[in-house]
Amino acid sequence: MAEPLLSVRDLIVEFPTRRGTLRAIDRVSFDLKEGEVLGMVGESGAGKSITGAAIIGLIEPPGRIAGGEIWLRGERIDNLPMEKLRRIRGKRIGMVFQDPLTSLNPLYTVADQLIETIRTHLPISEKEARQRAVALLDRVGIPAAARRIDDYPHHFSGGMRQRVVIALALCAEPELVIADEPTTALDVSVQAQIIDVLKEICAERGAAVMLITHDMGVIAETADRVAVLYAGRLAEIGPVRDVIKQAEHPYTAGLMGSIPTLTQTSDRLVQIPGSMPRLNAIPQGCAFNPRCTRVFNRCRVERPDPIDRGDGRQVACWLHDPAEVRNG
């Protein structure tokens, strides 16, 4: 098998506080193949955004990567000095954040920001960079791009701004784009447009996408594979269709059942009792065990690691341990 584009191995991210060290990410491992769209879902506090931040080296101190490795095409990037990391960020990894207003500098025109980013990473002239920027804006669906490129960010509407951010993330031809809740701040009718643009343009350029979102609908439409995080741990990872149609982890199953859909007929939604534990009170054993309907003794004592089921799916649940399957 070809070497994965991105490989995250046993990643641990910790935040020291005065009441003890909080483990926001606890031994998370996954791979991202070239050109693949990996969805990363989880509820707030599950650690999905922190995983993204760890990959691009943007963990806010005092938080730190306390263990594990991150490899980008065979090169280890989690322990690089700031200067080298900065060169990777933007050039090889592009970023799209939730709020388009904060990812654009309000004091510079869109042209300034695009051209500067392009020229920082690519050895081309100002004129070429501008041409490239206009072409890119046009591609992400900004009407009259050649004229609007000289506008300031506040001249654009929310959806248009997010298109600019996507152009900015892609202007240096990165191999990987990390999109953190790219549609959450947008209206429903605009969300679909943005997701389509992001997906198409990344596919065209062969960039892989790590799509971080709490919205299962967005994942269902966009991702090839999906990773489900719970309390800083990987609960399940697999092809998106399989995970959505037949979730194997009880948490994923509950999550899917709790989403109201346009075709559902029952009066009540499936609900998972309780709420996700705070990071300072993660239960022993499986983090989900107090809320799980299929819990048994082992779950309360021993933490399950992702179990490879051989069909491209991994499930961190003792129900899927071959030993348990045999016994019961």
């Binding site: 929310g158 429903v188 969300q191 679909a192 269902a220």
Partner: peptide, 24 residues
């Protein structure tokens, strides 16, 4: 109708979201 078309398809029924034109 447009709002309905914009809802993501979680059932993976193959229903394609229709591109919604423009913004508010």
């Amino acid at each position: 109708r447009m709002l309905l078309d914009a809802v993501p398809d979680l059932e993976l029924s193959g229903r394609r979201r229709r591109q919604v034109e423009g913004e508010i």
